[in-house]
Amino acid sequence: MNIEQILRNPHLLYTKSHDNKAIFDYFVAKIKRHVERDEELLANSTAILQSIFKIQVDYTKVFELFSVQKYYSAWCLLERIEIAIKGVLWHYNFIEDEYYVLFIKEYVKKLQGLYPYKVFGSSEYIKKETRCSICDSIITLRNRCPHKKGELYMGEMCTYIITKSEMIGMSIVDEPFNKYSVMGVTKDEDDPYKYQNIDFLLSVIDHPFNQWNTESYKIFEPHSKFSVPRNEPCPCGSKLKYKKCCLPKPGVEMDHTQFIMKQPTMKTRGMKPTKVQKVTN
């Protein structure tokens, strides 16, 4: 199995050219062999490559979730990819982004920017007891096991597991640490949000590794498009009365996102090479 070739061509994951399970099994077996031979450095480097492969697989899976309108599940997966990338970057310096990790990091952020989520719940808790994931020792400030959080030991990353905690509250924030806690949605089936930007992206890209960018600005939509009485809330979403907000303006001021493709795709064939259709939110 040529792992190097597989990792350097993650776009083939989207075409299902590989048996992902066989590749994951290969990594597990290889780490196990290194551990049995007490080859810690090799076990650790294989574990990093395994993490990179998982990042690539998960990134591809995000687009599969988009295609079946499981946007919230995709959002949660994007967060897990972010966390995994932090772990990889702690241990691996890329020269040319040969495994597309930096690409995925950049595009995870772009994809998150396409979501309509503005408000999140941020949990607050006191950590009462913490244990090492490698040796299960209780961690205190002045008494530690020899393992360091974030380091690899025989292919396994040391994390601190909170075994006792006291939840003390929940805040509403616009920039959360835990992105999965979106207000108003806990699963795909009860998702009230609209995802026009993501749907549009899917309509213009051929695969997850196409390169694109967005520009956001305001435009005026003609008043004739809206049948909102003057004393009702303005369609722009400001909560002001229409007559006090956009009615005196040339149109209703709306957020607008323009997608810019770095190269034309099969789906944009025939269109202008740099700009594609616009999405009004």
Binding site: S122, S123, E124, Y125, I126, K127, K128, T140, L141, R142, N143, S165, I168, S171, V173, E175, P176, F177, N178
Partner: peptide, 18 residues
């Protein structure tokens, strides 16, 4: 050092981005 007894050391996790 830290101004706390070892057994009383607790961290508060607020989980906002700050």
């Amino acid at each position: 050092e830290a101004a706390i007894n070892d057994k009383d050391y607790h961290e508060l996790s607020l989980n906002s981005k700050k």
